[in-house]
């Protein structure tokens, strides 16, 4: 892999650029986290240290909430662990893209894996599958620069605005009731919809949503994981059924690509 650094750098910039809407959406989330940590009695350095070392929005919110209600430490840690299990699904789906990378890059990429970077990178993967780059077959191998650009932008954004939240939290005490989390929710909607490319993806989304509505009161967000798993099974089952019914002769994956163009 002897590449001009500028090509790699350009990929990184592209990754950060495509993450921009999500950076904007994550800003209020980070600010509210910082403000909430302060109002729940954490010291400024602890609140900020958590953003620097843990870098996982949902876990940090939950940890702060549970700390405030003086929940036992093992329960807090178990909750944090379960809440982050969805990242294991993300990482598993990216396995084939990181297999060739050196260990230290895998560690950095794993540490900075978030909902947002995963969403942007999987969008990019879909894009590359639909329009394979003809003159530049190396684009797939450059994917990690794109990933890192997105991830580092998310990380610095998160740390910076957590700090802003810590400072603001000392002055504006009731910011957590402003409902700023709505930015993240509508951003996710904007990511999901373009990814619904056929029936099985629609079925997957609808299953996930309906299941989530019935399992929301399961402890430690296990309902979220359960819903996702059921929806994935529904999606892949429909895909397999459609494939065997509609096109019994087409067995290679290229046939799908051709019907798209």
């Amino acid at each position: 892999m002897t590449r001009k650094p500028s090509v790699a750098f350009q990929q990184g910039i592209n990754g950060a650029r495509d993450t921009l809407p999500l950076l904007v959406a994550a800003m209020p989330f980070a600010i509210v986290y910082g403000a909430m940590a302060i109002s729940e009695g954490l010291s400024s350095w602890t609140a900020l240290g958590m953003s620097v070392m843990v870098f996982a929005g949902a876990s940090q919110f939950i940890a702060v909430t549970l700390l405030a209600s003086s929940t036992a430490l093992p329960i807090i840690l178990l909750t944090v662990f379960v809440v982050n299990l969805r990242h294991m699904l993300y990482a598993t789906s990216l396995m084939s893209k990181v297999v060739h990378l050196p260990q230290r890059l895998k560690i950095i990429m794993a540490f900075t894996l978030t909902d947002e970077t995963y969403a942007v990178v999987s969008n990019r993967i879909h894009q590359l599958q639909r329009n394979p780059p003809h003159p530049a077959p190396g684009d797939h191998q450059l994917l990690h620069y794109y990933y890192l650009g997105s991830a580092l932008a998310m990380y610095s954004n998160w740390v910076f605005f957590s700090a802003a939240g810590v400072l603001l939290g000392e002055q504006v005490p009731d910011m957590t009731s402003w409902g700023l989390d709505v930015a993240m929710i509508v951003a996710f909607v904007g990511i999901i919809v373009p990814a619904l490319k056929n029936h099985s993806y629609w079925a997957c989304a609808i299953t996930a949503g309906s299941c989530a509505a019935f399992t929301f009161d399961w402890p430690n967000q296990t309902g979220l994981l359960f819903s996702a798993l059921v929806a994935i099974i529904v999606g892949i089952t429909l895909e397999t059924l459609f494939k065997t019914q509609d096109s019994p002769m087409k067995t290679d994956s290229n046939s799908f690509r051709e019907t798209q163009g």
């Binding site: 789906s93 909902d115 929710i185 996930a208 798993l229 099974i233 892949i236």
Partner: peptide, 25 residues
């Protein structure tokens, strides 16, 4: 290969569940 293609559904599945659990609920 079957698991590999199933993993394509991860983003849509997890994000849809997150959206419903934070909007409808």
């Amino acid at each position: 290969p079957l698991i590999e293609s199933a993993l394509n559904y991860v983003p849509v599945a997890v994000l849809s569940a997150i959206v419903i659990q934070n909007s409808l609920i």
